[in-house]
Amino acid sequence: MKLKLRIWRQESSGCKGRMVEYEVDNISENSSFLEMMDLLNEDLVSEGKEAVAFDHDCREGICGSCSLTINGIPHGPQKATTACQLHMRHFDDGQTISIEPWNARPFPVIKDLVVNRSAFDKIIQSGGYISVRAGSAQDANAIPIPKQDADFAMDAAACIGCGACVAACKNASAMLFTSAKVSQLNTLPQGKPEKDRRVLNMVKTMDQAGFGNCTNYGECEAVCPKEISLDMIAKMNRDYAVASVKNFFGTVA
């Protein structure tokens, strides 16, 4: 396959970025999107030009590193697929493909297609955990958890923290990410004691990081490689409403 690529190049966070055109040839349709990028980079390097920087690691759709917006859609056109698992057979020979980094103020570009997603870590640090010291846990089967709850928690926990939800949202909202963690932990009995505090703090951190507000577009859900559902956001909204009322009356645990 022969392809025309339009790629966002940016020296560093302070510099201005721009789209640069490249051409690649002899791309196997069995190669993954990132392998296509590898070949482009190999060509660039052999010419002594600087390679296009992009985040990637596991290349099997689970680590959440890869973060390319392909033709305006985070992770590209395939549903429930990360960029690393997207294969070139889904593109046409001769096609022009635009490749951009996640586009959101809280995710500043570090270089080219690499962005800083540490805002996500901060959100988790503000409450995305259950406080349990190693060694202090009771027997794993001491609290039965209805299968439905466990399954719902697992649906939420499948989030890989890639940030595609933010990148796809026209408001750059991080609601899907935040709500996935809140929903997972607030659903499980182990997470109940910190339920209100968790949701209040995580939303506060999310706001402070500068993410936009949810206007229920649903784009996040559509591009999520793990198909996290908007139901998680509804759950977080519910928990937040309850926690806000409790907070007003000063009864948050």
């Binding site: 809280p106 500068g210 993410f211 206007t215 559509a222």
Partner: peptide
């Protein structure tokens, strides 16, 4: 929201 998302994609896409 406008502040959080300053730029449009080169090829802004909408899925759903």
């Amino acid at each position: 929201n406008k502040k959080s998302r300053p730029r449009e994609y080169d090829n802004e896409g909408t899925v759903q």
